[in-house]
Amino acid sequence: MNPLAPTLLLVHSPLVGPLTWELTAAHLRREGQRVVVPSLTAVVEEGPPYYRRFAEAAARALDMDGSHGAVVLVGHSGAGALLPAVAEVVGTDVHGAVFVDALLPHPGNSWFDTAPVQLREQVAGLARAGRLPRWHDWLPSDVLDTLVSDVGLRERFIAELPTMPVAYFEEPAPNAPGWPASRCAYVRLSEAYAGAADEAERQGWWVHRENADHLALLTQPARIAGVIARAVAVVADT
């Protein structure tokens, strides 16, 4: 392991669990990368402010690992919106960030503010007593079966899914003045995030478009680990 290489902080979406990253993390470690995968699944039970609490949980995972020196944040899906807050808590050690099929930062706006109208109405309609069902229940019944065909792996993935308070989706993302917007890369895995990848490219980020799917980091970890390593090398050298 290169002692000068950055630690990779792999942040999962609040809607899923750390298993989403753990198999890819194992491949990255075998390639000599230092990797930390925080678990954010219980954070919402602490109440608002959610973004700050997610960021603090991610930073604690770094501290518990004993990681020192440069850090590259890597966020998947909904974790993309969290990365500026994570960078703010972790501080000057953050060297850059990689967004993997992820939302782009939206400081000052909530998830509901930025979501397409149809998706926003769909999600709001699922709420019961201020909570949303687990993420796989948002989808048609066969979608997750297709994305994660291995039954055992799919059951482990589902077991980690939290129910989410609607208040999380209503909370504006905080401003993060120290956010390293010039040291970012974007990895698009699915067509659903083509627009985000295009916007990242317009902002001058390094962008890689992989012909995969949204959960490829769970089902094709060796392949995605290779792509992540390339993206990290780009932002670490900037």
Rank of each mutant, 00 (worst) to 15 (best):
A97I: 09
T219P: 06
L23M: 14
L28C: 04
R60T: 15
F157C: 02
S13Q: 08
A212W: 07
V35G: 04
A124C: 06
P116G: 10
E22T: 12
R52F: 00
S39G: 13
P172K: 04
T163I: 05
I228D: 14
V86I: 03
L10V: 12
P180G: 03
H95G: 01
S110A: 10
S77A: 13
V74D: 05
D142P: 06
M164W: 02
P172S: 12
L4K: 14
A236P: 04
A26I: 04
E45S: 11
A26V: 04
L23I: 08
E31M: 13
L23E: 13
D137M: 11
Q203Y: 10
L217Y: 09
T41R: 15
H208C: 03
N175S: 12
L28I: 10
T219C: 11
V232M: 07
G204D: 05
L218I: 13
A181M: 09
H208R: 14
A200H: 02
S141Q: 14
G78Y: 15
V36Q: 04
V11L: 08
V207T: 12
P165W: 01
A79W: 02
P105C: 01
A192H: 12
E201A: 15
G66F: 02
A236V: 08
R209L: 06
A173E: 14
A127I: 11
A229I: 01
L126A: 08
R34K: 11
L28M: 07
V143M: 13
A87E: 03
V16C: 09
A81C: 08
A57V: 00
R131Y: 11
R53L: 01
D93Q: 13
G130T: 12
E88Q: 15
A212D: 14
G17E: 06
V123G: 10
V123K: 10
Y186D: 09
G66W: 01
R120A: 14
G47E: 13
R34I: 05
G66R: 03
A79K: 03
T238P: 04
S39I: 02
R188Y: 02
H106C: 07
R134G: 13
L73V: 09
R60E: 15
G108A: 04
N2K: 04
G125Q: 12
A197E: 06
A97F: 02
A231T: 06
L4N: 13
L132A: 08
P105E: 00
R134N: 04
L189Q: 05
R202C: 03
G80P: 09
R53P: 01
G96L: 03
P6L: 02
V123L: 11
L153R: 14
L4G: 10
L19D: 10
D237I: 02
P3G: 13
N175P: 02
R183M: 06
V36G: 00
R134E: 12
E199L: 13
V123C: 08
G78P: 00
V35D: 08
V11K: 01
A115N: 11
R120P: 02
H68E: 15
V232G: 02
D65H: 13
V98W: 01
G32P: 09
D63K: 11
L132P: 03
D142V: 12
H136K: 12
D93H: 06
E191V: 15
A229F: 00
A70Y: 03
W111D: 03
D150Q: 09
V90M: 01
L132G: 07
A102K: 00
V235M: 09
V143W: 14
E210I: 08
T20H: 05
A185L: 02
